Every structure is written in structure tokens, then in C-alpha cells.
Computed example of a mutant assay.
Amino acid sequence: MSQSPAPARRRRGNARGEQTRSVLLAAAVRAFADRGFHGTSTRDIALAADMSPAVMYAHYATKEDLLFELSLDGHRSVQVLLDAEVGRHASNTDRLRAAASCFGQWHAEFHTQARVVQYELNALTAEHLAEVTVLRRAIQGLFGDLIRAGVDEGVFQVADAEMTAMSLTSLGIDVARWYRPTGAWTPEQIGHHHGRLALRAVGVAD
């Protein structure tokens, strides 16, 4: 599994404008990951993108607008990927394993962006946070639906499906905090491990 983050709400414009926004988003990811949202200035982002602040302001009025678009991109990418991976399987066991596996692997492959969008949420405005929260709940809801389906089928054994879903998504999210490309495990190995953990959490021996 390898998939670049899917675009969120791209502004209409010419190809040059789209390229400029892509460069600004990439620069913002690096800056926010290195310094944190509050420790990063708009000038830092513009310099990292090798642009003037005036060019940046022509596309994004504030650095919070950049964080919001990054957050939408990240969460929508995960949502699209989960839907595709889960849809490839028929049994509830395979579907849950696939969901947990790709969720953990994504947070390793795109750990820099994931670290920003998962741990800088409080920097979003209330309106933007509410929109991102809808996506986060949908992702956790997918895990909850898979677990409840397995319980109804008599295959999974859990005391609380919602708490189990929250635990599994939290494990996947935390990968972005500790994963390093120079570490002992590849994203694929991490994904495989998370798939096995998910099945054990619902009482299935893999």
C-alpha cells in the first residue's frame, strides 16, 4: 500500500497557481513539524518555499488556512484509503485487519504530515476544527461499524465496540509520533503488526 495524500478542497486556478499552493503546503508541513504551529511564522513558511510572504498571502490569508487544508488533505486521504482497503475484503475479520493495517501504515509513510494534522488540531479555528472533527468521527465510526458487525456475526468478542474502535485508531495515530524512517521497522511491517493487534483486540487469533 502506497498512496499520496489526496487533495482536499483545491481552489480553482491555473496550473501555476496549483503548483505554488503545493509548494506552500509542503513547506508548511516541514515547518509545522519542526517548530510546531505556534512556533512557525508565515515568513518561515514563505522562506522554506523560496517565496516572498506576499506570494503566500495571495494564496493563503493566514498560516491557519494552511494548517486547515493540510488537515483536510490528511483526513480525507485516510478516509479514501480505508474505504478502498476495506472494500477489497468480504469477511469482517479481513476487513478489520485491512483497516487497522492501512491506518497504521499510512501514519508511518506520511508521518510528517500525520504528526502535524493529528497533534496541531487545537490550533485550528472552532469552525475549521468542527469540519475536521466530522472526518475524524467518520474514520473512527468505520472501525466501530466493523467491530459491531463482527460482534453481531459472533466472530468478535468485545465488551465495548466504541472504546475498542477508539483504542485501535489511537494506536494508529500514535505511530506518527514515534516512527522514524531510520528506525527498526518499515511502514509495511508496522501496518502488518497493527492488523494483527486489531484482531487480538476483538478476540480473534490471527
Results as ranks from 00 to 15, higher is better:
Arg16Leu: 14
Asp145Ile: 04
Ala159Glu: 15
Leu66Pro: 07
Phe68Gly: 04
Ala84His: 10
Thr42Asp: 11
Arg115Gln: 09
Glu18Tyr: 08
Leu135Val: 00
Ile45Met: 06
Asp174Ala: 15
Ala8Asn: 10
Tyr119Gly: 06
Asp94His: 08
Asp50Glu: 15
Met1Phe: 11
Leu67Trp: 06
Ala99Gly: 00
Arg76Cys: 01
Ala15Gln: 14
Ala184Glu: 13
Ala61His: 12
Leu171Arg: 15
Gly150His: 12
Leu197Phe: 08
Gln3Asp: 05
Val134Phe: 04
Ile139Thr: 09
Thr186Trp: 07
Ala161Phe: 08
Arg115Ser: 09
Ser41Asn: 12
Gly154Asp: 01
Ala28Thr: 08
Val55Ile: 13
Pro187Cys: 01
Ser4Asp: 14
Ser41Ile: 14
Leu25Met: 15
Leu142Cys: 12
Thr125Tyr: 00
Asp44Arg: 11
Arg30Trp: 04
Met51Arg: 15
Ala198Pro: 04
Arg95Trp: 01
Gly144Cys: 07
Asn14Ile: 06
Gln3Tyr: 07
Leu47Thr: 15
Pro181Thr: 01
Leu146Gly: 06
Val151Lys: 08
Phe143Gly: 03
Tyr179Pro: 01
Val78Asn: 12
Val151Asn: 09
Met1Pro: 12
Ile190Gln: 11
Arg43Trp: 12
Gly141Pro: 01
Asp206Leu: 15
Ser4His: 11
Leu82Val: 08
Ala176Glu: 02
Ala48His: 12
Leu121Thr: 05
Arg11Glu: 10
Gly172Arg: 04
Gly39Ala: 05
Gln105Ala: 15
Ser52Gly: 13
Glu162His: 10
His89Cys: 10
Ala149Thr: 09
Gly191Met: 05
Leu199Gln: 00
Ser170Phe: 12
Asp73His: 08
Leu121Asp: 03
Phe110Gln: 15
Asp83Leu: 11
Asp34Ala: 15
Ala123Ile: 02
Ala58Pro: 01
Asn92Leu: 10
Glu153Leu: 06
Gly39Phe: 01
Ala100Arg: 08
Val86Met: 10
Ala198Trp: 02
Ala54Leu: 07
Gly195Lys: 10
His89Asn: 05
Gly17Leu: 07
Asp160His: 02
Ser4Pro: 09
Asp73Glu: 14
Arg137Cys: 00
Gly154Val: 02
Thr62Trp: 02
Glu131Asn: 01
Thr182Tyr: 06
Gln3Thr: 12
Ala27Trp: 03
Arg148Tyr: 00
Arg76His: 13
Ala15Met: 11
Met163Arg: 14
Trp106Cys: 07
Glu162Ala: 14
Ala6Asn: 03
His107Met: 01
Thr62Ala: 03
His194Arg: 11
Asp160Phe: 01
Ala205Cys: 07
Ala100Pro: 02
Ser52Trp: 00
Ala126Gln: 11
Leu142Asn: 10
Gln118Leu: 14
Asp34Val: 08
Leu197Tyr: 05
Thr42Val: 14
Met1Cys: 09
Ile45Leu: 00
